[in-house]
Design a protein around this nucleic acid. Structure first.
Lengths: 161, 161
DNA sequence: AGCTACTTGCAAAAATGTATCATCTGAGAT
DNA sequence: ATCTCAGATGATACATTTTTGCAAGTAGCT
């Protein structure tokens, strides 16, 4: 993320807090900046670990609460993936994901064409659509390589990205 | 799921196990049948609870392991959702989901048109796409109703479906 | 029936997320 | 600059979900 974009996101952050009467604490700023600086999709605990480098006193609970707030304010996205831990994404504009079925890794996919899918008619469910994103599932480069060497599936790795 | 379809899925289940040298235990059959019979998207613990009606002795651990196996064999899907527990889906053909941002509920969406999105070129990532599915995020009927009555967001419910 | 590899169940613990409450702090008012 | 208070924070404890290691059991084959 370039400097200009980051400035803009921080201004958006300050404004959203002002408008909702929420104080901008150093913890909130540290958590938000920490996620902004990342190119991957960290879990809450990964954010906690990163923020502690700057604020060693911060509590894990606070990080969980702040991440929840930031998502509610629309400043971060909570992303969907087949794993079992919540992951957070600094990108709040529409984009899509490649999800590896072996290691659970997630790669961002930004392609204008994919943003043009017409929304289905879901009036029969009473559902109101806000946005959508597409998950392409398959196998990442590393896992394809690993699968080629051994017939057996690759050893399960910690999910990354 | 009608009877014929169920027969076919059970045959597929037996064949996949034979081909991979995995014994078909009564626990495996019970877990698979239990998920097949459902119309919703149960979590591992919900499957555990349901299977115990038939096999009271089965351990929670076994259910977790078997669900993982069935997903690896392609007999079940593990679905993506913003909540914090893994959920399983008996439908392995392509379909899409409506996900409620408030309560986390999931509704199946089967619409032929949505299956026709052209796959992006991801050679630059070395990624091999197997399939895709679309998440439409928004608000379900119940949560819209609840939001209308009070300005505040609805009380957090246990995620269903 | 017997062999063998794989599975199961148990116990324990790690990982992840939530609740409670006393104390502290940001931000506007004075 | 200081005051004041609603709201945030941090500590602890707890609930839930998932993983690990190993002894005992069982499916599938000969």
């Amino acid at each position: 993320m370039n400097l200009e974009e980051k400035q803009q996101r921080l201004a958006q952050f300050a404004q959203a807090h002002r408008e909702n009467g929420l104080p901008v604490t150093m913890q909130r700023r540290a958590v938000f900046e920490s996620v902004l600086e990342r190119e991957d999709h960290p879990s809450a605990d990964e954010v906690y670990a990163a923020v502690r480098a700057e604020l060693p006193e911060i509590s894990r609970m606070t990080v969980y609460r702040i991440l929840g707030n930031l998502v509610a304010l629309g400043l971060l996205n909570k992303i969907c993936h087949p794993g079992s831990v919540a992951r957070f994404d600094p990108k709040i504009y529409q984009h899509h994901h490649l999800v590896c079925l072996d290691c659970g890794g997630i790669i961002d996919l930004e392609e204008e064409r994919l943003n043009k899918v017409a929304w289905p008619d879901v009036r029969r469910f009473g559902f109101e659509i806000a946005d959508y994103h597409i998950h392409f599932r398959g196998r990442c480069a590393a896992c394809r390589q690993a699968a080629k060497k051994s017939r057996k599936p690759p050893t399960k790795r910690k999910q990354t990205s």
